[in-house]
Amino acid sequence: MNDRLLDFSIKYGFLILLFGLIIFFSLTTNGFASARSAAFVLQSVALTGILALGVTCTLVVDGFDLSIGAVATSALMLSAYSMVILEHSALVAVLLCLSMGALVGLINGLLIVRFRVPDLLATLGMMFLLIGLQRIPTQGNSIATGMSLGNGVVAEGTFSKAFLWIGRHRFDLVIERLLPMPVVIFLLIAVFIWLFLGFTRHGRMMYAIGSNERAAGLVGVQVNNYKIAAYMISGVTASIGGILLAARLGRGDIASGNNLLLDSVAAALIGFAVLGAARPNAFGTAIGALFVGILLQGMTMMNAPYYTQDFVKGAVLVSALVFTFYLSSRRTGAGR
């Protein structure tokens, strides 16, 4: 009986907590339980959610990508540079950002697989490098139309309408202009990664690598290629996050996106606890991101001050980790 209770709580505890929170906030605050508020929560987690889905892929192969935040801000600066200073079209800017993300992922992967640099260190180094690199072309300044480029030249390009549309368009759903574009992209990526990891043979082999790399190699899985692919997926999703951020802000703001790394890693790790998976998974990651978003939204509506937010996120993360690692280890112990 006790075992079954433990099993049940490991499996559904987190989801029950999530629904409990939703009901609690709906009852205690005015306006939490509304479509607008739901769309707002989704919008607030879309960016971190997208990055978190990428980092989930690296966690699946037992790796880690610390460079996602820096890739996102680099994409932000690159898109601004491309459109405002080089006066490219939206399409060129987007393609540039995506290939930058893929290239960074490829380099991360090669550092880890070919040069045997431990994943945390390789991606930490890459993070540093990118944070520095994105500031060099503009001498550390933010990019906006009308900025001075020296020699009396002024940047004349603008963020194209099409580009801003990616970040700002809202689709009608029941209510007019309800669903923001980034949310749609987040949901699309979530479904894609969920299908890829859970239902394709490639995803299955990536999980095998994460669980026992040696054994996977000995059955003929191309371990190195899959690891590199995981980092490339992570790089591309991070650059998508950066593009959305740029399109929302409408300028190449050097200081934005600081929290992206921590928030998205937290979402992916919280995801371990969802459905008792005890391993990285796309569904859990999306729920983890939502969980944080709902909690913050509800607390904001209850007038909790903004500076408590990081504390709350940290507390959720730590409890989710205890939940995952301590309870699941007890479960495997009991199952024997």
Binding site: Y207, A208, G210, S211, N212, R214, A215, L218
Partner: peptide, 8 residues
């Protein structure tokens, strides 16, 4: 070490 995928 060489064959079993413990998570599967």
């Amino acid at each position: 070490t060489n064959a079993v995928i413990p998570d599967f």
